[in-house]
């Protein structure tokens, strides 16, 4: 099947559009999270997404409806992680661990109580971007628009806070509000990304493109743009490779992203040696 023919299928068009948009979101937010040493929040929130999808399936809600059930639950839990790490004298990773295990436990419990929907739950665990519906694409476009507008509007504050929170506060940045916004946007992105690579692999989309970009970039704005570019390249290449080679799409996207990271990392080391 040639590229032109592959592109003529509406499911491919939907997958490429939604995958690229979600890739950009993950890449941009990933830069802030990696630099703030919050990389694993994506993993923690993905586990909560597992619980929230199980909740949606328990009530026989599928597709876009499952996303709409997941969004408030995961956003609430993201604020819970933030509050625990700020107020309860515990580090961010401990707070992520607590909320994440709660999400998995709730998911397993609901799956056991609901019976019968384990197959559906598996499709969310490993993702299937090729099966993304028109409603899910529209939802992805809307939410991506919201996230990108907010990141652009608060760019200076986000960069200042990521560099040093205390300094940002003294410069008049409302760091508590900006932190809350960052974790809420991450929650939103994680819920959207579960369709692309699946709950199990979401954190890879947040971490790999941004980590590769941070190896190369010579400026913060450049890092964000490069990260977004690498993510889109990884998602598009991954989708085509999975269709061409008949491989699972989510895992292929992650492996392509890992390949890009490995190339950038080893290329940089070789360059430095010369």
């Amino acid at each position: 099947m040639g590229i032109t023919e592959t592109l003529s299928y509406s499911f491919m068009q939907r997958a490429l559009l939604a995958g690229s948009l979600i890739g950009v979101l993950c890449a941009v937010l990933g830069c802030f999270l990696v630099l703030r040493r919050l990389s694993l929040i994506g993993d923690g929130l993905a586990h909560v997404t597992f619980g929230s999808v199980a909740l949606a399936l328990f009530f026989k809600l599928y597709s876009a409806a499952a996303i709409l059930v997941s969004l408030p639950v995961v956003m609430l839990c993201s604020l819970g992680i933030l509050r625990l790490s700020e107020r309860a004298r515990m580090t961010g990773d401990t707070a992520i661990g607590i909320v994440s295990s709660l999400g998995i436990a709730a998911g397993v419990l609901l799956a056991s109580l609901g019976g019968g929907f384990n197959v559906d739950l598996f499709s969310y665990l490993f993702g299937n971007i090729l099966a993304i519906s028109r409603e899910e694409v529209l939802l992805a476009i809307t939410l991506c628009g919201i996230v990108l507008v907010l990141v652009t509007f608060f760019y200076n504050d986000l960069m200042a806070m990521t560099f040093n929170e205390e300094l940002a506060r003294v410069s008049g940045v409302r760091t508590r509000g900006i932190s809350a916004m960052l974790v809420l946007l991450t929650a939103l992105t994680v819920v959207l990304a579960m369709k692309v690579v699946g709950i199990m692999l979401i954190s890879a989309l947040l971490i790999l493109p941004s980590s590769a970009a941070l190896q190369l970039a010579k400026g913060f704005r450049a890092a964000l743009l490069l990260s977004a570019g690498l993510a889109v390249t990884g998602v598009i290449t991954g989708i085509f490779a999975s269709v061409g080679l008949n491989l699972p799409t989510g895992a292929t996207i992650v492996l392509v992203n890992f390949g890009i990271f490995a190339l950038v990392y080893s290329g940089k080391r070789l360059w430095a040696r010369d």
Binding site: N156, M159, A160, L167, A168, S171
Partner: peptide, 8 residues
């Protein structure tokens, strides 16, 4: 950042 932080 000293000039931009806190400005939207």
């Amino acid at each position: 950042l000293g000039l931009l932080a806190g400005k939207r």
